[in-house]
């Protein structure tokens, strides 16, 4: 298994957010974590990324406990709920920066621009773009760089319906190439289109 979480429990202020959650994802698999607001989807993703230590349970990612350190982030990508960018750089430069720091990339910067519908925005600074376009840039940076595990927190946020369908096919291609995807989502259509296995969380 690439990701193995057993009996994960997380408490905030004495209240359980996750209570004995199990999750397993193998190589080439896409897992969609769904559930109502407040059921702990983002918290589970943060646990898998090593950003939230669980109160109880065991988590293994790539056969080791997840940790917020460079070695871990060279294999694992987390796309959070808010797009991030560096001030003063264009869309294309963000993509080239990501390819440069990793010494290679899964996609070329120009190819990523086309795939993520950003070709017309190549010279724009992210603050001048819409929320959806900034989300596309975040996803493009995440999928351009080499990785083995992709953790996506509500990747559909701000995206139009047509691009959600394209994102599903991009995720499917990533998994087909051997990557593992865990996404927390409120869009079952996106998850189904990507061929994801569902895990439903309920309020603890």
């Amino acid at each position: 298994m690439i990701i193995q979480a057993r009996n994960v429990t997380v408490e905030f202020g004495g209240a359980a957010v996750l209570d004995g959650v199990d999750l397993a994802a193998g190589r080439g698999e896409i897992v969609a974590v769904v559930g109502e607001n407040g059921t702990g989807k983002s918290t589970l993703l943060r646990c898998l990324a090593g950003l939230q230590p669980p109160a109880a349970g065991e988590i293994g990612v790539l056969d080791r406990p997840p940790a917020d350190e460079p070695g871990f982030w060279r294999d694992v990508v987390l796309v959070g709920d808010e797009p991030a960018w560096y001030p003063g750089l264009t869309v294309l430069e963000h993509l080239e920066l990501m390819a440069s720091v990793h010494g290679g990339s899964r996609l070329g910067a120009e190819e990523a621009l086309e795939s993520f519908g950003l070709a017309g925005r190549r010279d724009m600074a992210p603050p001048a773009m819409s929320t959806g376009q900034r989300q596309r840039l975040s996803l493009a940076m995440a999928l351009l760089r080499p990785s083995r595990v992709l953790l996506l927190d509500e990747p559909e946020r701000g995206l139009d319906a047509a691009f959600r369908a394209r994102l599903a096919s991009i995720l499917t291609a990533y998994a087909t190439a051997g990557g593992t995807v865990v996404l927390a989502t409120h869009d079952p259509g996106l998850a189904r289109a990507a061929g994801a296995r569902f895990i439903v969380l309920e309020a603890a």
């Binding site: 460079p70 982030w73 990508v77 991030a84 920066l97 720091v101 990793h102």
Partner: peptide, 13 residues
Amino acid sequence: DDPALARLSGVAP
């Protein structure tokens, strides 16, 4: 302020 890009880059801090 927002370490998301630093994590994405994977460069040792």
